[in-house]
Nucleic acid binder design. Structure first.
Lengths: 331, 331
DNA sequence: TCCTCAAATGCAACCGATCTCACAATCGAT
DNA sequence: ATCGATTGTGAGATCGGTTGCATTTGAGGA
């Protein structure tokens, strides 16, 4: 048997199409008894509305795109995870769009979902978003960006307070006696990468620590670059703050490969606070981003956007997750 | 300006709607000159077809669901990555559906995408799929399963040869002098978990190794269970094969926490061959699943399915990725 | 009992495309 | 020149709902 359509339900319930439609999508517009009857008949027939047809007529769908550069990066995986959950809770279906770092794909995806009448979209960029093109491309600006945005305050954003995060890391390391604290930057380009690095510089000078940035050329193997620089350093840092957990993993792996022990010889703290870090060796101390909140809030901002409210800029506070990759300085 | 519709293009080009439609979706049915003219006019207007309207009328969309239990598990992340790429290449838009281990969500998702006229769906289950319900639920059986299927050969599947994978691990460990080789199973339930464990038992007995399965109660912390069992073992295994990389990570982290060194005190080999393992400490030796091929082939099987071809069962061969978590036995 | 007005329902156009069928133009063959 | 077979285009129903407007229903008041 084919799927029942709205007319089948209408016939079976002895009412008109439009009444069935209202029974589902505008409950207050129909008499309670009628509504119940229609719903019962519909249930008996195993009827459910076609989201496609709805979207076509209403010009609004429940498909919300989340655009991320790389799902293979556990940070984005966790973000996708929490955002999908938040989306589902609100009745949206999250569409995960993977750009693989290809800028042009972003606007392509945006076009594509726009033509599916998405109510809004969420972008977690790897490189600065070209907002000019976003706006023009589509979507009437109904885009939420996870990360700061340079030039344009009309786009709502959710970010994490990098400066505070870095401060937490410094504080922790200082309390363990570290005074030579270096920084391992990630891929440049994003605002967060920039913010964190900046925050490192500031925090270092505030504490009379000589800023040392390790491995800035960014070839394929970040880990060995960082460790090379560390070894070459006149005054070897006793601690390294990585700009994110993935970098921290790579750095620790490389230290270990060269028989430099973490945290005995050098402490490492990450930035992300991924669950995965709890099963790393050693278990990774890290600045924890409130990823769950980020997902939740992105959806909320999106909904405000579609209600025509003005752009908000939410900044979330990170916390410190102390595990085993940091220890007292021994010298 | 509102988005142009097909009638706008038709008017501007001086032809009928249907001709425009054909110019796009059935090129051979329209005179070349007409076609070119229509396409040019459409381009000038910045016109593109509404996928929603298309899907509604054709009763086929380009939305392909990939249902996975947990994107936070890097295996599924890599799978999603490659499958999304393969899907895009064929003009599909992958919809990632996260079940979080909630069985009932699977059929919900299936219903949902079915009503969006998905041509087929892909399921990478964490627990055995209830095919009865899948079939009945929706989709006319147009589902590809990544993992074996027990009861039903009418569903196409793509699997990896677990037995061979385990053999590779054994071979490698044997060549390093290991004779006490234990196994750390993952979450039970999936066929792959079952297959791998079975394969371990068989491979062990074939090589006169006493099978030792570590940590089978499966509380929250698998790592410490495994290590507890390892410590309690009368004859401590010199090597552990983990049923997947995530388990291997957890086990190594726990070994290390208790000051047991990998690979000096015990070798560990994983199963998945994730890129992430290359940045683990120590870099993880692992049986590598051909994840890229799995994604690609799932899409292909799906396409065959929608063309009415009969179900195929593809089995892929794993390879061994030798890194640094295994070493010669020292006793 | 009749009238009024609001609430509930029916009617029919519409969202943006596809597709079957009918019709016109073109062509080769007789 | 006539005719049947192709080929290309137009007409209009259709996919499965939504929605503004018209109409019916029913409660309350005179």
């Amino acid at each position: 048997m084919p799927e029942p359509r709205i007319d089948d339900v209408a016939a079976a319930a002895g009412v008109h199409r439009s009444t069935v439609s209202r029974a589902f999508s505008k409950p207050e517009a129909v008499r309670p008894e009628t509504r119940e009857h229609v719903l019962k008949v519909a249930a008996e027939l195993g009827y459910s509305m076609s989201p496609l047809a709805q979207a076509l007529r209403r010009r609004v769908s429940n498909l919300v795109p989340l655009i991320v550069p790389d799902i293979t990066n556990p940070f984005f995986a966790e973000l996708a995870h929490t955002t999908a959950a938040a989306a589902r809770r609100q009745g949206y279906q999250l569409i995960l769009c993977l750009t693989d770092g290809d800028q042009s794909l972003t606007s392509k995806y945006l076009d594509s979902v726009h033509s599916m009448y998405s109510p809004f979209g969420i972008i977690a960029p790897s490189t600065p978003v070209d907002l000019e093109s976003l706006r023009r491309d589509a979507f009437d600006n109904r885009v939420v960006v996870i990360d700061r945005v340079n030039s344009d305050y009309s786009v709502p954003t959710v970010t994490v307070d990098s400066a505070h995060g870095i401060d937490l890391a410094f504080e922790h390391l200082s309390s363990l006696g570290h005074t030579e604290i270096a920084y391992a930057p990630g891929i440049v380009g994003t605002n967060t990468a920039y913010d964190r690095r900046k925050a490192y510089q500031r925090a270092a000078s505030m504490r009379d620590v000589k800023p040392q940035v390790l491995g800035s050329t960014h070839t394929a193997d970040i880990g060995s670059e960082v460790v090379d620089d560390w070894l070459d350093s006149a005054q070897r840092p006793t601690a390294v703050i990585a700009s994110n957990d993935a970098i921290a993993f790579a750095v620790i792996a490389e230290f270990s490969t060269r028989n430099i022990r973490v945290p005995e010889d050098v402490s490492v703290v990450g930035f992300d606070g991924l669950d995965l870090g709890a099963h790393f060796n050693p278990r990774l101390t890290s600045v924890k981003q409130p990823i769950e909140a980020m997902g939740e809030i992105s959806i909320q901002l999106g909904e405000k956007l579609m209600n025509g409210e003005t752009a908000e800029h939410i900044m979330l506070e990170p916390t410190l997750l102390v595990r085993s990759s940091t220890g007292e300085v021994t010298s």
